[in-house]
Simulated scan of single mutants.
Amino acid sequence: MKSLITERLAINGLLLILSLFVLLHLLILFGIIPFEMVWGGRIKNQEEMVRLELVSIVANLLMLAIVAVRAGLLRIRLSYTFMRVVFWLMSGLFLLNTVGNILSTNDFERFVFTPVTIILTMLCLRLAISSEQKATA
Rank of each mutant, 00 (worst) to 15 (best):
L89F: 04
M49A: 07
N45M: 07
T105I: 13
L73M: 12
R110E: 04
L24E: 02
Y80E: 15
A137P: 13
L93T: 13
A10G: 00
A128H: 00
I5N: 03
P34T: 09
I119A: 00
R77I: 15
N60K: 14
A68M: 11
K134Q: 09
L9W: 10
C124W: 02
F35Y: 11
L78I: 14
L29S: 07
L23D: 06
I102S: 05
F82G: 15
E109A: 03
F30I: 14
L23E: 08
F113V: 14
L73E: 06
I32Y: 05
I57D: 00
R8N: 09
G13L: 06
L15Q: 06
L78H: 06
M1Y: 03
I118P: 02
E36L: 13
L89A: 08
N60S: 10
T136N: 08
R77W: 07
K44P: 10
T114H: 02
V99F: 00
A71P: 09
A71N: 04
L95C: 09
M1F: 04
L64N: 08
N97P: 11
I11F: 00
I43D: 03
I33H: 01
M37D: 04
A128I: 12
R75T: 13
F87Q: 14
I5L: 06
L120A: 01
N45E: 04
K44L: 09
Q133G: 05
S3A: 10
I28F: 00
S3D: 07
V50A: 05
E48T: 12
M83E: 07
N106E: 04
F94L: 13
L14P: 05
S19R: 14
L9M: 14
N106K: 15
F111G: 12
S3C: 13
I57G: 02
V69F: 01
R42C: 08
N45K: 11
L20Q: 11
I102A: 05
L127T: 08
I28M: 05
F108L: 14
A10F: 01
A71V: 11
L20R: 15
W39I: 15
T136G: 06
I57Q: 05
F21R: 15
G72H: 05
M37P: 11
